[in-house]
Nucleic acid binder design. Structure first.
Lengths: 342, 342
DNA sequence: CTGAAAGCGCTAACAT
DNA sequence: ATGTTAGCGCTTTCAG
């Protein structure tokens, strides 16, 4: 078996209490003893068990991260940042892909609790009020990224979705577009709703009437969005521009349109949201609203860990400022487009 | 505190052993008792602690996954597949971003051991012989994905790098190119070496002499690759085509070239390796060698978990067949290119 | 400055 | 069919 605290204690000729103390830098142990114990531990290649220590009430140094899909750039970039910060602070992170499915989310949450994780970061869309209630009842530190659930006093950091959507839409408006579609992904979460509000607000400011018919549904899968595009092509063709709820949808739309023979950005202007690495790579490179993903991941991790350590006065809600990044997917309105007869 | 097995036992009027048995479906317990215990447990919202159970020698249902960077599509797609399969089989996965740094890798490995993970999947480039030796000595089940370390009898699944590189290069050759560069990322791992060999073999078969000068160094960061491209531009311009060691490098090269005023694919043909989602999105869409990422992740997870459960005759080495996916980044050699004077 | 002992929540003989 | 009990490896009073 692996070497335990007993092995070290015996070989060092001290009690296990002493060994425990030197490893936790607690109590008063003479420098000599410390040196000696450390020496012996090293010889024996002793590695204190986190699970045994956790059982005595100490933390597991683990946080759970729930996101829809780690293969999605926005979340993988977020996960990277969270894991980095966690690692710096001595935490390990377990990822949970929920696909925005309430059942999967519930399942993961239960496992995480059974594993006694120290805290949980929710970056998933499915989270219901009930889930939040349970989490609070069980007193497990929970934080929200890029996701808001009204009515709960938890740490969260998110981007100003309203403002971002407003800027995206206004950018299109200023380019002369008026037939601007809004294409969503899942649409069951507040984040997308808020972006829709921002879109509407921009239209309103510029006195362009909002039309229900200009709302289209994409999907978090590029393939599915392409499929949707195909099916809604005639309606889509009535637009000259689109604000896509996120980069992935924007790209699905672009790919779909290209497949249908559109030449971009000439035949359609598109702006996305997130500014993941995909935005740069895409053809045409994507004009989009940047969220400071890395910073957000770092902040939420800090907040969560502060809460875990009880070093926190009150819960914070940090709202980051979005930024319009102009690339090549959105250009000036051209009145001579064949389908822009309006 | 959270409710424990004692709470359930007391309220149900049975012993903790009974409760334990019903939850583990062990021993002979009357149907009535089972029902009753389950009922009480539900009322109390009892969730058996994995950490306590782990301390008694049972597994933690956790596997560790070491990869260079989860924000990199190849690894995030791989991670997704591994997590999916793990989840199906009741395992949770903790991700560790090593950046191919031996220190980080060692650090993570120690933590994982201290957390008593049931097994580890290594998808990182840094892994040294020594690390593998330690892992074997400590008898912790270890598996390798997309990475080979000769001399160790461990489960692994990888893609035929030689064959893939051969096909990529031959594709370029058949398009009429002879000045074909090879651009690498880290180059310190066997995988890249093997791809280089495949590249050389294809050249040889087609009687094109291999030149050391045609090897260029890219980087796992797109930005860094672009930088490298800038610096090596004059040498790069002597090529008419490139085989990039992976999609990320290919994309860095493409972006860098475009920034330098190249028009692609006209001015340079490029083929990548991996077929991540980036390949489709990129402009021009990337001709590349597809690895069955999803299948590989699933297979390695199965193998590892089989080993954990002791249900395995011997260690497997599964080599997947790569497949050339033709898109738009590589085209016929045009003798009239201004810098193709050879 | 160091050690003995209780206990964390659960499992697995071994009894009954 | 069910209960008693001895650990698992560690932390933490409390004594000495």
């Amino acid at each position: 078996m692996r070497t335990t605290i007993y092995d070290v204690a015996k070989k060092a000729g001290v009690s296990i209490a002493t060994v425990s103390k030197v490893f936790n830098k607690k109590g008063n142990i003479s420098t000599e003893t410390i040196q000696h114990v450390l020496q012996v531990a090293k010889e024996l290649n002793y590695k204190p068990s986190f699970v045994a220590s956790a059982l005595t009430g100490k933390s597991t140094n683990t946080i759970g991260l729930l996101i829809p899909d780690i293969a999605n750039s926005f979340f993988s970039e977020m996960a990277r940042s969270i894991e980095d910060r966690g690692h710096e602070l001595g935490y390990t992170v377990v990822i949970c892909n929920t696909d925005n499915l309430p059942e999967k989310e519930a399942q993961y949450l239960e496992w995480l609790q059974r594993k006694s994780v120290d805290g949980i970061i929710l970056g998933t869309g499915a989270t219901s009020i009930n889930v939040m209630k349970t989490l609070q009842k069980d007193r497990i530190p929970t934080a929200l990224v890029s996701r808001e659930i009204p009515g709960f006093n938890v740490n969260m950091v998110l981007c100003d979705d309203f403002q971002g959507a407003f800027e995206a839409t206004e950018h299109l408006l200023k380019l002369g577009h008026t037939n601007i579609g809004f294409i969503t992904a899942a649409f069951d979460n507040l984040c997308e709703q808020t972006r829709l509000e921002g879109y509407k607000a921009a239209l309103k400011k510029h006195k362009v009437p909002f039309k229900e018919a200009n709302i289209f549904s994409g999907n978090m899968s590029i393939e599915q969005t392409k499929q949707n595009v195909k099916e809604q092509l005639s309606e889509i063709s009535k637009m000259t521009a689109f604000f896509a709820v996120n980069d992935l949808v924007a790209i699905g739309l672009i790919q779909g349109l290209k497949e249908q023979g559109f030449s971009l950005p000439n035949d359609m202007s598109i702006v996305g949201f997130d500014n993941t690495m995909l935005a740069v790579i895409n053809d045409p490179s994507l004009t989009t609203i940047a969220q400071p993903i890395q910073k957000m991941g770092q902040l939420i991790t800090d907040l969560l860990i502060d809460e875990i350590n009880g070093v926190q006065a009150k819960k914070e809600k940090i709202v980051m400022k979005p930024e319009l990044i102009i690339r090549k997917s959105a250009i000036k309105y051209k009145p001579d487009l064949k389908w822009a007869e309006n």
